[in-house]
Design a protein around this nucleic acid. Structure first.
Length: 817
RNA sequence: GCGGAUGUGGUGAAAUUGGUAUACACGCCAGACUUAGGAUCUGGUGCCGCAAGGUGUGGAGGUUCAAGUCCUCUCAUCCGCACCA
């Protein structure tokens, strides 16, 4: 009897792998490669179960492909810049750098105590100065290409702390630290021109079909939000123009539904619209109204979409086709970042416009009717249909009318066919310390000047105090003072740092570089060409839009800068679900976390990995269950202890299948079924839970017989299947009995699946009643006869209408009685 | 609010193409064994019913010989919404 001691076995193999550098990728580029990558973690302090899940999945892929003889790159790094380091500094007085690197050290130990097969030599942290150095060089290239520019943008500002706040730091419109109501401040910031790549980011989603989950492709498509429509100017009437001191004659609106234009009954501006701003600044609005607008502006964009609110401006514009007056409103649901920040409102055919019109008692003029049926009262009809009350366009269908109306506007030069995107340029400035400095210098004479590449990195000062007030780099006594790289005169460094999404937009390229060249170059074309794209990219669904879109954008930019030669970074994407406990996301504030260390201590890493892969398919949410963890532990224990039935062997045993008993045959069949399923899971389906269930079934079947060869063959295969999941115990058994020779590609023996009879279900009117056993290849007539006989009880007094035989599945007899 | 997903026994889940619903585990129940252990092993276990049988995949309709799977509506929960990463 063997005794399972997870600690001894796990320590032994973790040391073995470390000493033998078992998981370093080879530089032999003639081998077939697999690049397996999990989204790298932010070093928050300790691993949580979401991490364990993420890396258990990628590790299973990595180990499987190593078994298949592939050259596997499975790297790990830390996304180590970011706000939490500063929050910790504010809270505990720790230094962001020390806090970050202490966390990294701790988490690295946790990783290796879980047995993850990462390349140790390629570990990196994005806050490493070496990483910053190359990133800043890329930023300079992008600026020079015109892909990075400066413009004003609205930020959350706490007037008390004199600091910019992240959305997360705004709690109910107030500063998280001092509770001061926030204001919106217009500040100069840097933006990536991601919109320039909008069309390509959209079109290339097609290349990802099959490799990426459909839902992610749809989310990205909707996020880019390309829509075609009509843009035109709405002109103020005389009276309104005079009210505005003739400063504005018109404003621009965009609509995707020009066919509904005769139904316009009001127009709405975003509260941030320049006309509104002008009216506030020139005292054209009452204080009450101004206060209301202010409130709208500081409400989060999400809340603004919920309860509709508006204010009449007392202005009118002229409808471009009917010449009638149309009132101008401010509406909270109109967003300044989309289109022109102004809309024509057609309450009869748009739900939001409808709700708004109802609330403020504005006219609702229907101009589209359904092609079939009647218009429903008291509801916006948002489908396409046939036009009426639309002048010369009456009777046209929506599509034709859209075309004709756009043409009419273009011919009369009063509007233009326009394409709009929801996608906005990516703001990258952060007024914070713990991030990569933007390597620019402001010179009075030369304007914005790039730092010289030989001077990179522009590194962060370490003597810094993080108080939560102001911008730390700006407050530093000396750091920002420098000389202009162009003219040499005293100048000021840019004190904004970069959004941490920048680091995560190219780290997967950096991993392709062999460490001996790390100082010299970010990565080489040759290495990139070999390793990219990432074969399996695994991470949380919460990154479905932003991170993945930004990484795709950087890839395209790097391609256009000549660094790489492909369009998309991630061939296959697997989005994992969250880890829950008691039905809620594990979080410190809810107090429902489970510490991975405690699980490793109690049961071992293999148990943690097995449970997490067994409890649910990777894409689904995973409910933590303590006693199911125990069950995983017991399986491993059984798996280890029963290996004593195995005969030592250097090769897979040869078995004469025909001579076996029924139980022995069944056991072999189950083992090979598990193998077929495993190959399918590792290559196509990724449902590790069903693969593990298959192995458990095979184990149960092996246990019904005593044939030592069948046991040995079973373990030879099952250890190979399970090594990617429970590597320590599987390696231990494989070494002991098979000298590790079984950890390689396994071939499937078809002979074990051959059967001479099959069981068919018999249904009457689709309801399963009994089953029959028939010989393989039996004719349908015989099968039906057999089915009728065994189901005779349910057929008495009935008229048979139809008989259906579904091959190898069932017989359905349709009766009437 | 908009966009995306999910919903199956007491629990996590399975059912790959419309074809025998609940595989595999957890839990529970019963038994065996014992050096009394974090045991282990064997059997049972959707629900109602003594049974025959009925019923059953969030809810309501529909298509089909046949629906967890397809369609329409609806409810609940979760994810994202651009400065959390």
């Amino acid at each position: 009897m063997l005794d399972y001691h997870s600690k001894t076995i796990e320590k032994k193999w973790q040391n073995f792998w470390k000493e033998n550098k078992s998981f370093e990728p080879s530089d032999d580029f003639s081998k077939e490669k697999k690049y397996i990558l999990s989204m790298f973690p932010f070093p928050s302090g300790r691993l949580h179960m979401g991490h364990v899940r993420n890396y258990s999945i990628s590790d299973a892929f990595a180990r499987y492909h190593r078994q298949q003889g592939k050259n596997v790159l499975h790297p790990i790094g830390f996304d180590s810049f970011g706000m939490p380091a500063e929050n910790a500094a504010i809270k505990n007085g720790s230094h962001p750098k020390g806090w970050t690197y202490d966390n990294i050290d701790y988490m690295k130990n946790e990783f290796y105590s879980l047995g993850f097969s990462f390349s140790r030599e390629r570990e990196l942290a994005t806050s490493d100065e070496l990483y910053t150095k190359f990133e800043q060089a890329f930023i300079i290239d992008m600026y020079e290409k015109g892909l990075l520019y400066r413009k004003k943008g609205m930020l959350n500002w706490c007037p008390h702390d004199q600091t910019v706040l992240a959305n997360e730091q705004v709690v109910e419109g107030c500063c998280w630290r001092c509770d001061t109501p926030i204001v919106k401040k217009d500040m100069n910031q840097y933006y990536f021109k991601i919109t320039q790549y909008g069309d390509e980011l959209l079109d290339d989603l097609k290349k990802l079909e099959g490799g990426w989950p459909k839902q992610v492709l749809t989310m990205q498509e909707n996020w880019i939000g390309k829509s075609n429509g009509l843009a035109f100017d709405l002109f103020f009437d005389e009276e309104s123009s005079v009210k505005l001191n003739s400063t504005f004659k018109s404003f621009d609106v965009f609509t995707t539904r020009p066919d509904t234009i005769y139904g316009v009954s009001y127009t709405a501006l975003a509260p941030e619209h320049e006309i509104v701003t002008y009216m506030i600044e020139n005292s054209l609005l009452s204080n009450d109204v101004i206060a209301e607008i202010k409130k709208m502006k500081t409400t989060s964009s999400i809340d603004r979409q919920k309860e509709k609110a508006g204010i009449s401006l007392g202005l009118d514009v002229i409808h471009p086709l009917t010449g009638k007056k149309v009132p101008v409103w401010i509406a909270n649901f109109v967003l300044m970042d989309y289109g022109s920040g102004a809309v024509m409102a057609v309450p009869a055919h748009d739900e939001r416009d409808f709700d708004f019109a109802k609330k403020y008692d504005l006219p609702i003029n229907a101009v589209i009717k359904p092609l079939e049926g009647e218009l429903e009262a008291d509801k916006a009809f948002t489908e396409v249909g046939e036009l009426f009350n639309s002048g010369e366009f009456d009777g046209l269908n929506s599509k034709k009318a859209q075309y004709n109306i756009i043409n009419y506007f273009e011919e009369n030069k009063i509007g233009k066919k326009t394409t709009n995107y929801k996608l906005k340029d990516w703001g990258v400035s952060r007024q914070r310390y713990w991030g990569a400095p933007i390597p620019f210098v402001h010179c009075e004479d030369c304007g914005i000047v790039m730092e010289k590449k030989e001077n990179l990195p522009v590194a962060l000062p370490e003597d810094i105090e993080i108080t939560g007030e102001g911008n730390p780099l700006d407050n530093h006594p000396t750091w920002k003072h420098c000389s202009c790289p162009a003219c040499g005169k005293p100048a000021l460094r840019e004190t904004d740092t970069m959004d941490t999404f920048v680091e995560s937009s190219w780290y997967f390229l950096r991993f392709c570089a062999s460490p001996e060249n790390w100082e010299k170059e970010a990565f080489s074309k040759e290495q990139i060409k070999y390793w990219m794209g990432v074969d399996h990219y695994i991470g949380g669904i919460e990154h479905a839009i932003l991170h993945l879109l930004y990484a795709r954008f950087f890839t395209k930019v790097f391609r256009d800068l000549g660094y790489i030669e492909f369009d998309e970074p991630f061939d296959k994407l697997l989005t994992q679900g969250m880890v829950l406990k008691d039905g809620a996301k594990m979080s410190k504030s809810k107090g429902n976390t489970v510490d991975p260390d405690a699980i490793i201590e109690k049961y071992g890493a293999d148990t943690a990995r097995l449970f997490i892969l067994f409890a649910a398919p990777p894409t689904q949410e995973l409910e933590w269950n303590d006693s199911a963890v125990e069950g995983a532990y017991r399986f491993i224990k059984r798996f280890y202890e029963r290996s004593s039935k195995v005969q030592k062997s250097e090769t897979i045993p040869k078995i004469d299948h025909a001579s076996l008993s029924k139980e022995e045959k069944f056991a072999r069949k189950k083992v090979y079924e598990a193998l077929v399923r495993a190959n399918d899971v590792y290559n196509e389906r990724y449902t590790f839970n069903t693969m593990i269930a298959g192995v458990m079934e095979a184990m149960n079947a092996l246990n019904t017989q005593e044939n030592q060869d069948v046991w040995s063959e079973g373990y030879w295969i099952l250890c190979s299947i399970m090594e990617p999941v429970i590597p320590h115990v599987a390696s231990e058994i494989s070494e002991k009995y098979f000298s590790l020779n079984n950890l390689t590609t396994q071939s499937v023996l078809e002979e074990v699946f051959v059967e001479d009879s099959m069981t068919l279900g018999v249904s009457i009117n689709g309801k399963r009643r009994c089953e029959i056993e028939v010989a393989l290849g039996e004719s349908d007539e015989t099968i039906i006869a057999l089915a009728k006989e065994s189901a005779s009880k349910w057929l008495e007094g009935m008229t048979i209408i139809k008989e259906i035989v579904v091959p190898k599945k069932l017989v359905n007899i349709v009766v009437k009685g």
